[in-house]
């Protein structure tokens, strides 16, 4: 299962590196979101700095959605889904591989957006340990749920509109948790943030299990 996962993750990441869609479209979109927030909330009033945790995670979710949609769009063309099914790889391996590749892309996005808010919003970054833990756990939560709902919406004509509707309400606890944890870290009270990291770990664990068991039936169908 794990070697299958590794194979799929490497394939997907290689595809992303070669196609440069993440680099040329998703990353510029993420930066665009940061700039749009600045237009919407006047930078002079200090709102941007105060709202940094929320804006940061909204930007991650929206640009992450694009990465997740792509993760299944690449499989939909040319009957790759059938090929994947015939390949003999275990469905749970495929799920974990897809999750891993989405997680790697999300991490890259998050690092970039972190630099973005520090530079553009003038947010001073403190509480590194909590920040890193939050990013790791939230990334796990977003990519495990995103990959599972990604395959639910995959191959349908309405997938672009269906995935956000399915995924964003489900990710509400992750948005609440990661934002509160970031607020705690940035305001210098990290002890308030750790329970949220715990909650998001539970979330990620639920989705890993659901994905490992649910991916098989979802792959079987036509």
């Amino acid at each position: 299962m794990l070697s299958d996962a590794w194979l799929i993750a490497r394939k997907d990441l290689k595809l992303e590196i070669r196609s440069r869609v993440a680099l040329n479209q998703v990353i510029p979109f993420a930066i665009l979101v940061l700039v749009l927030f600045a237009f919407a909330l006047d930078p002079d009033r200090g709102l941007l700095e105060k709202a940094t945790p929320g804006l940061y995670w909204i930007a991650v979710l929206f640009s992450g959605l694009l990465a997740m949609q792509r993760s299944f769009a690449v499989e939909a063309a040319d009957g790759v889904t059938d090929a994947l099914r015939l390949s003999g790889l275990t469905p749970s391996g495929i799920y974990l591989g897809k999750t891993l590749s989405v997680a790697v892309q999300l991490l890259a996005l998050e690092v970039l957006l972190g630099v973005g808010v520090a530079v553009l919003y003038g947010t001073s970054i403190t509480g590194w340990l909590l920040l890193v833990a939050t990013i790791v756990v939230a990334t796990a939560a977003i990519s495990t749920a995103g990959t599972l709902f990604g395959v639910v919406a995959a191959g349908l004509r309405v997938r672009e509109t269906l995935l956000p509707l399915l995924l964003l309400p489900v990710l509400a606890p992750v948005l609440i948790g990661s934002t509160r944890a970031f607020e705690a870290a940035l305001s210098g009270t990290p002890s308030e943030g750790w329970p949220w990291v715990g909650l998001m770990s539970v979330f990620a664990a639920v989705y890993v299990v659901a994905g490992i068991f649910g991916f098989g039936p979802l792959m079987e169908e036509s």
Binding site: P169, V170, A172, P173, I176, G177, R180, P195, W196, L199, V202, F203, V206, A210
Partner: peptide
């Protein structure tokens, strides 16, 4: 499971 996690997180929040 989603409803439970959402409820829990909203309550904490």
């Amino acid at each position: 499971p989603n409803v439970l996690i959402v409820r829990e997180s909203v309550q904490w929040w």
